[in-house]
Amino acid sequence: MIATVVEWKTLGESVLYSLVGGIGVTTAFSIAIAGATRSYELARDGRRSHATAYGVLAGVAVLVCLAAISVGIYYTTKKT
């Protein structure tokens, strides 16, 4: 009975999107914070090249977060 009542494919996709989106955004944002913090500390210690590399990492991670959020909002407005 359960198998016919529940749209398992849709439910499964919803679960997958939730897991990937939620975990992905938090992970990317954590990398952004870690990158920015390390970049600041290294710049303060005069290690410019390493600081730049961490700064770039932070920037890319922020872009990933923004892209994920944009995709999330886009797909919410788009018909299934």
Partner: peptide
Amino acid sequence: FAAQGAGAAVILASSHF
């Protein structure tokens, strides 16, 4: 942040479907 991110992801995904 993790709780809000998880919540938003689940709600947006289910709104999509």
